[in-house]
Amino acid sequence: MQNIIEINNLTFQYDGDSPNSSAAVEGINLQIEKGSFTVILGHNGSGKSTLAKLLNGLLLPTEGSVSVDGLLTTDEKNIFEIRRKLGMVFQNPDNQIVCTVVEEDVAFGPENLGLEPSEIRKRVDSALETVDMTEYRFAAPDRLSGGQKQRVALAGILAMEPECIVLDEPTAMLDPKGRKEVIETITRLNKEKGITVILITHFMEEAENADRVIVMDSGKITADGSLFDVFSNTGLIVNAGLALPQSVELLSVLKQKGFNVKPGYISPKAAAKEIYRALKGGTL
């Protein structure tokens, strides 16, 4: 399958940092397939947000290169095309909504692209429909809940018809209900619309639907593989400064105690099945 993102030997160091201090992102090689759902996990300061900003040219590489759909981020004239193809949603929903009315905010991106008013209207209506916020289209953003605001922000990106959406801890400031709404919407976008999703988070439970999980620590990729493979290696997750999901932790303790279980199951249901299998297998 074709890759939408190609990262070669990427290193980035913030300007203010002394040359001797370690880089925020160091020596990263990464390809993201079109249509895939990738989760990037890492604790605060692991370089995951910096990596996100490098993807669409908000930050430019100190060394190495990033290209989106074959376009290099370092080339000034590509930048708008890259940002249209690769939309980004940030952590704080309050700080990414520009306008005072929901539908006008969703229109902000397409308006910047210089589209015809009728085309903008069409995209805004369909984006709001997709995130299930049509009934709030005339509302003021500050009257919405966190989850609703984040869905509006997502609609604002969708209206630009991107091929890939990068979400930088989109649920960190939300309550469990808002978190669920947002994750469900993202999953649906990936499965139904075939949009490539890169979800950056430190909530491991959100990796549940991922095709691929990448773990970052100190600016480097320390694990990269399927959900099951990555979570089977519990030591690595703990070393990256992340707390294990409860189900994985339970399975790994069982394994230590001599049960024949594999710890890579993240959802409670899958973990329960694994335990059932192990018990029925009669390994005790």
Binding site: N95, V98, E104, G109
Partner: peptide, 20 residues
């Protein structure tokens, strides 16, 4: 944050911008 978000949504001032 807002400046980043606006950059991400291809904002480049009034030039070439249309209205819904």
């Amino acid at each position: 944050d807002l400046a980043d978000a606006m950059d991400c949504r291809c904002y480049s001032g009034g030039k070439g911008r249309t209205r819904m």
